[in-house]
Computed example of a mutant assay.
Amino acid sequence: MTEVVVEAREKADLSKLEMLIKRANELKTNIEALARAIESKYSADPRLESVVKNLLKTMQPPEPPSDQLLSVSNSLEKYVSALEFGVKTLTTYAVTLDELYEDLEKLEREVAELVVWEELLRNLAPHLASEASRLASRAQRLLSQPPLDEPKRALDEVETSLKEVRSHNRVCRTVYTNRLNELLSTVSQLAKTLKRASKVQTPTDAGRLFAHDEALRKLEEKLEEASQRPLEVKLDLVAVKRELESIEREISELAESALSAEESSLARELERVARTLDTRAVSFMSLVESLSRRSGLPLEKVCYLIYLLEKRGFVALEVRVKV
């Protein structure tokens, strides 16, 4: 009876050993397949080559128990557990590498954009350009050499960098767009001033006014194109602003040459008031009193000059009468 029990136990132990050996072989095959897949997919990528090499080096399958221990199921169980842990870890790393690869691709695109913003804002907004340069340098270091020790750490650092670069790109785009829109508004204002100046032009001034009109038209086209494709057009807004300031000075000189000193002074004050009010209305009394205080002219004189300026096309007042 004792012999039967021992024999049954030995058969059970043998069956368990066979099952463990089969499981160990399956797991080892899985680890090797995962390693080959990771190596095949990412080892050729210069950004991930070192990470993958380091990962595969540290994730080698554990050595099986020695021959004399094969009869001890406990050793095989530990071996199988180690293999299961290896499969689980390598699978997690494979998913992490997929995410890391995607984020590196995104980061590369965002950094390329950031480099352009740094160039465009160097003179326009130096503090933003400086921050763009710092973030781009950090991101480029990550792109060229992610942390080797752990893919998850590399992913965390890349995600952080990606978030920072994206955020700064948005800020840069907003600032650039706002400045560009300001310049478009300036072009529009200068076009109106030019139109007024053309009403009192002399034959000598006609050529200069036409040249300014052409220059404004071309600048407007450039600004409109840059508003649609800023990173491709790469328009230097500081240079555009300088050109507009030069045109503004010349147009003002041409316009004011046809006006008396008092008319010219009042026209400038009216232009300032118009910019301040924008689309808001103001009472005629308040307007005249304000202009009188600023110009030092009597109320009657201010009213008369406003009449002359509007008649000659230098200003346009919209009157709404309430009773």
Rank of each mutant, 00 (worst) to 15 (best):
1 M>G: 07
5 V>C: 00
12 A>M: 09
16 K>Q: 12
17 L>C: 06
20 L>R: 02
25 N>G: 00
28 K>I: 05
30 N>P: 00
40 S>W: 08
42 Y>Q: 04
44 A>L: 15
45 D>W: 01
47 R>E: 14
47 R>H: 11
50 S>L: 15
51 V>A: 08
56 L>G: 03
58 T>A: 15
61 P>D: 05
66 S>D: 09
67 D>M: 05
68 Q>P: 03
70 L>N: 08
71 S>L: 14
71 S>V: 15
72 V>I: 15
85 F>T: 05
87 V>I: 04
88 K>V: 01
90 L>P: 03
90 L>T: 01
93 Y>M: 08
95 V>H: 11
99 E>D: 09
99 E>L: 08
100 L>M: 15
101 Y>V: 06
101 Y>E: 10
108 E>C: 00
110 E>Q: 13
110 E>S: 06
110 E>N: 07
114 L>D: 06
119 E>T: 04
124 L>I: 04
135 L>K: 03
138 R>N: 06
142 L>F: 00
146 P>D: 06
146 P>E: 05
146 P>H: 06
153 R>F: 10
153 R>Q: 07
154 A>R: 05
156 D>E: 11
156 D>W: 07
160 T>N: 05
160 T>H: 01
167 S>L: 11
167 S>M: 07
170 R>L: 15
170 R>T: 06
178 N>L: 15
179 R>C: 09
185 S>I: 09
186 T>K: 15
190 L>F: 14
195 K>L: 15
204 T>W: 05
204 T>F: 12
207 G>R: 11
211 A>H: 05
212 H>F: 15
216 L>G: 02
219 L>D: 02
221 E>N: 00
223 L>D: 00
233 V>P: 09
234 K>R: 14
243 E>D: 12
246 S>C: 04
246 S>I: 10
248 E>N: 11
250 E>T: 03
251 I>Y: 09
257 S>Y: 07
258 A>E: 05
262 E>H: 01
262 E>I: 02
262 E>A: 03
263 E>C: 00
263 E>D: 02
263 E>Q: 02
276 T>K: 12
278 D>V: 00
279 T>L: 08
284 F>P: 02
286 S>D: 15
287 L>D: 10
292 S>P: 14
292 S>F: 05
297 L>V: 13
299 L>S: 09
300 E>D: 13
302 V>Q: 09
307 Y>Q: 10
307 Y>C: 09
313 G>I: 12
317 L>H: 10
317 L>C: 12
318 E>A: 06
319 V>D: 07
319 V>E: 13
